[in-house]
Write a protein that binds this DNA or RNA. Structure first.
Lengths: 151, 151
DNA sequence: CGAGTAATGTTGGGTATACCAACATTGGAT
DNA sequence: ATCCAATGTTGGTATACCCAACATTACTCG
């Protein structure tokens, strides 16, 4: 982290990419800490959330929905399965696929992570008023949507 | 990257931390590509910018100004020195320190990276009007400032 | 039907960013 | 003079992201 005082070069201070990175890095730190304390990491939450919202899925689908590479889905699902948060079984209708299912433990864990994340949003957006939060979210959503389409 | 269509879980889609991360990831990709094409990476730009704006500095100062860990400064300065973009010499007034100096080649390279970065800002903020860009920058600056102080 | 193409899970690798702990050397402070 | 702090350095960790190759299975279309 930028240590307190430290004069940041103006070039950086005013670049949108730098600002976004700073805030993102902070958010990242918060999320990493919060999740680590709950024994999870980013990929875990993303996968659990996708399973909760879309139901049992193949690993490839999970990857597409969460933006995680197929190969990284394998590892993360291994970890989740080892903790009984998720169950992996072959898909009888397509033998190439596995069906990943959220277990009751997984649901519980997800709800826990939800709380962690909610707390982080508040910390992250702390200095902003409700209106400003809405503004920021709207602007970021537009950027995210635009870049998701246009790549 | 999130592949085009793919339904992102609502939980993620609406979290500020996720949005920021998405945009940051995109910005990151752009910067990485742009810099890679110029034979540089993020740390290099940050260090060169700090040297340009504050003059010859010790590695520790560079680290504080750019938010880069001391140990990572070592590696990055090694790389920059190997390309003659920077010169490392012992500080006669404090034998613990090195003085890192920007070379003419380094200045040239920095100006090149400046251009790359300027192009990226435009791409990144593409969908926003001038006013909206100002808004976004202001909001992000407040968040960054707040978290820089409060940690 | 058969042949080629595409999707899936998996392994194994690579990179950038961000940290942390330890160490020897040197400065500075009390 | 002694203790403490700063500095450069080495080496290690974790996360996120991304790529290439491979065997297996499904699908398509001549």
């Amino acid at each position: 982290m930028m240590t307190a005082d430290a004069q940041t070069p103006a070039r950086l201070r005013h670049a949108a990419s730098w600002l976004i990175n700073q805030v993102s890095a902070h958010s990242h730190r918060l999320v990493a800490e919060g999740f680590a304390a709950a024994g999870a990491r980013g990929y875990h939450f993303r996968l659990l959330a996708a399973l909760d919202e879309y139901g049992p899925s193949s690993q490839a689908d999970l990857g597409r929905r969460t933006g995680i590479d197929r190969s990284d889905v394998v590892a993360a699902v291994n970890e989740l399965a080892a903790k009984n948060l998720v169950e992996r079984s072959p898909d009888p209708s397509d033998r190439r696929r596995n069906v990943i299912t959220l277990t009751p433990d997984g649901s519980r864990h997800l709800r826990e992570l939800d709380k962690v994340l909610a707390g982080i949003q508040d910390d992250l957006l702390g200095p902003l008023t409700e209106d400003e939060r809405t503004q920021l979210t709207a602007l970021l959503t537009r950027l995210a949507d635009h870049h998701r389409r246009a790549g």
